[in-house]
Amino acid sequence: MINFRLVRHLWLFLVVAEELHFGRAAKRLNMSQPPLTEQIQILEQSLKVKLFERSRRGTRLTHAGAAILPAVRKFADQLERLEFAVREAVAGQRSMLTIGAISTAMVEVLPSLIVKMKATHPDVTISMREIDSVEAVPLLHAGDIDIAFARLEGELGSGIQTIPLREDRLAVALPKKHPLAGRTRIPLALLAQEDFVMFYRHVSPSYFDSLVSACRNAGFSPRVVHEVSSVASQIAFVGCGQGVALIPSGMKKVAHETCVVRPLAKKLSVITTAVAWNQATGNPLVEAAIAAIKDS
């Protein structure tokens, strides 16, 4: 049985944790501050831990509060999706397809797919969430998403099928005044002594590993001095003179004037987007979506 009182208390905790200010949290919740403080105290008593420290310097999470925050955020997200599914079911929209996608896929792949799905399945409800590539397979196994669009390649585990969708040639982003910036094509080996700005490996392991492998095949291991979470951030760091970055050549269009993007002398390609799904889910909408993708 769902403990709705606990659910409410966890929601109040999440809002206070996001605001780190009881007054602002109360205003956001459309309630006065004393009842909010009382409800948080009840939650702390129930959990037998202190969740917030309050002082003249403000409100901050205790170690216990910080430890449970990720789980509470995930729980709140699941509740929102459950509420959405219930609303759609009541409205007669009984078919739902949940898609997880990296930001580039939302721009390059999903718009046309959604148009096709709406045309062939007008009653379908499509729920989307932004993910990192590393989240794709666990979310598919857990059933939290039906289809993933991410940087994926190779063997992804039992039951997970994948189709490459987008591939791009590797290029190097350089500060505008870099000695190699005047070249039209750059041999990868010439970057052996450079500082690199790379993706966090945990964001997209296969993509990260493919870049490192390319460098090693060129005779060196990249000296990674900065790790970031997006290609746009790589380009920004390069523009600030913090190193060089290997990026898909198609991202040249977002490069700032403080950096240049040059293709590598040897053509090296990486998968920038693939679609993946779990064969065990049995959702017929997944088959319809994959068929639509194959026909495009």
Score class of each variant (00 low, 15 high):
His9Lys: 14
Leu10Arg: 04
Leu10Met: 08
Leu10Asp: 01
Trp11Lys: 15
Phe13Lys: 08
Glu18Ala: 10
Glu18Asp: 13
His21Glu: 13
Gly23Val: 12
Ala25His: 03
Lys27Met: 10
Lys27Cys: 10
Asn30Phe: 10
Asn30Ile: 09
Met31Cys: 07
Gln33Ser: 07
Gln33Asp: 07
Gln33Tyr: 06
Glu38Pro: 06
Gln41Lys: 15
Leu47Asn: 08
Val49Phe: 09
Leu51Pro: 05
Ser55Leu: 04
Arg60Met: 08
His63Gln: 15
Gly65Tyr: 05
Ala66Phe: 05
Ala67Glu: 06
Ile68His: 08
Ile68Ser: 01
Leu69Ser: 06
Pro70Lys: 07
Ala71Gln: 14
Val72His: 00
Arg73Thr: 08
Lys74Asn: 13
Lys74Tyr: 11
Ala76Cys: 09
Leu79Phe: 03
Gln93His: 15
Met96Thr: 14
Met96Asn: 12
Thr104Lys: 14
Ala105Glu: 08
Met106His: 14
Leu110Cys: 00
Leu113Asp: 01
Leu113Met: 05
Thr120Ile: 15
Thr120His: 10
Val124Met: 06
Arg129Phe: 03
Arg129Gly: 05
Ile131Asn: 01
Glu135Val: 11
Ala136Leu: 06
Leu140Cys: 03
Asp146Gly: 03
Phe149Gly: 07
Arg151Pro: 04
Arg151Val: 02
Glu155Tyr: 12
Glu155Trp: 10
Gly157Gln: 08
Ser158Arg: 13
Gly159Ile: 04
Gly159Ser: 06
Gln161Met: 13
Leu165Phe: 04
Leu170Thr: 08
Ala181Lys: 07
Thr184Tyr: 06
Thr184Gln: 13
Ile186Ala: 05
Leu188Arg: 05
Leu188Val: 08
Ala189Asp: 11
Ala192Leu: 08
Gln193Met: 11
Phe199Gln: 05
Phe199Asn: 06
Arg201Lys: 09
His202Tyr: 12
Asp209Lys: 06
Arg216Glu: 15
Arg216Phe: 05
Val224Lys: 07
Val225Leu: 09
His226Thr: 07
His226Pro: 00
His226Phe: 02
Ser230Asn: 03
Ile235Gly: 00
Val238Lys: 03
Gly243Phe: 00
Gly243Ser: 00
Ala245Gln: 03
Leu246Ala: 05
Gly250Ile: 11
Glu257Asp: 13
Thr258Ala: 11
Cys259Ser: 07
Val261Gln: 02
Lys267Gln: 14
Lys267Gly: 10
Ser269Ile: 11
Val270Thr: 01
Ile271Pro: 02
Ala274Phe: 03
Ala276Lys: 01
Ala280His: 13
Asn283Cys: 01
Leu285Ser: 02
Leu285Ile: 04
Glu287Thr: 14
Ala288Phe: 05
Ala288Tyr: 01
Ala291Lys: 15
Ala292Met: 09
Lys294Ile: 11
Asp295Arg: 14
